[in-house]
């Protein structure tokens, strides 16, 4: 028997209005428990940030977290020409390091991914091992080398910082290139494409998320580096921001307010870079539809 469909008088009600929607049970012990734990942890990490924000505008900033007596003087100090120059130096150093590292890592990763290389396995293992070794253990011989070659300036240091990020970047990018089906390249080679063309218009666009991550890693790696610029850059006006930050601490006193303000300014470029690259991260799963 077919039921007669009643012409609905109130047109606002959709035809499914009398049905109870399916719902996932919102409250369960594991959900409540995990949310409590996560909240506790996030508070733990949020307190230092709160201190940073408050201290940077507090006239009498100390190491305690308290309500501030508002002032802008710490920011004014932070933006003094010397401090600003240090930020600019850091920016240059990090951009150079990140660019050099990412470009070199891209080519290296491509070779490791696609070419036949003798002892590829052991070499890759070696690279993986190196990416875990802090470069600081080599700081003394590096200093000797740099000083005897007269390289105790900004750019050679930037290159070195780029190199320190290289092993990890190679690994990161190689994983992305590995995921690209070879057929794609072969299809291009058949069309008489040259190697550089394949790299540029097939591999590069499909590796973008990996390159973005690698570039960000290279940038942050150089941006946060303290010891290497401190040792390898001899001139004060080429010095990087972390070293400058350390300058707010001297033998007799610590300028908490200035440290906080400068730290906040110092963290901004990384945030900006992350936001700028975030579209590339999202472009992540571009391989859809390439092969069946």
């Amino acid at each position: 028997m077919t039921r007669e469909i009643q012409p609905s008088r109130s047109t606002e009600l959709p035809p499914w209005s009398h049905l109870t929607p399916n719902k996932v049970n919102r409250w369960s012990f594991s959900k409540v428990f995990s949310n409590i734990v996560i909240s506790a942890l996030s508070i733990f990490f949020a307190v230092p940030m709160l201190w940073l924000a408050l201290a940077s505008v507090d006239k009498n900033a100390t190491f305690q977290t308290k309500l501030p007596v508002l002032t802008a003087e710490h920011y004014i100090v932070s933006l003094e020409s010397g401090n600003l120059a240090a930020l600019r130096n850091s920016l240059v150093i990090s951009l150079v390091a990140s660019t050099i590292g990412t470009v070199a890592a891209f080519f290296a990763a491509y070779s490791f991914s696609r070419h036949h290389i003798v002892w590829k396995g052991p070499i890759l293992l070696g690279i993986l091992f190196l990416s875990g070794v802090p470069i600081t253990i080599l700081i003394v011989p590096m200093y000797e080398m740099f000083s005897s070659a007269g390289l105790l300036t900004m750019f050679p240091t930037a290159v070195l910082l780029g190199v320190t990020a290289l092993p990890f970047q190679i690994y990161l990018i190689k994983n992305f290139i590995d995921a690209i089906p070879r057929d794609l390249e072969e299809a291009a080679y058949i069309e008489r494409a040259k190697t550089w063309h394949v790299l540029w218009s097939v591999i590069l666009p499909l590796t973008m998320p990996g390159l973005a991550s690698a570039a960000l890693f290279g940038f942050v790696n150089a941006w946060g580096s303290f010891l290497i610029p401190l040792v390898l850059i001899s001139s004060d006006n080429q010095q990087a921001a972390p070293v400058r930050l350390f300058g707010f601490v001297n033998a007799t006193s610590i300028d908490y307010g200035a440290i906080a303000a400068y730290s906040i300014i110092y963290s901004l470029p990384v945030v900006v870079l992350y936001l700028a690259l975030s579209r590339q991260f999202k472009a992540g799963f571009v391989l859809g539809g390439a092969v069946r």
Partner: peptide
Amino acid sequence: DVAMVFQSYALYPH
């Protein structure tokens, strides 16, 4: 001077 249709299609996804 060959043209090929790949079994896997091998389209450029980007």
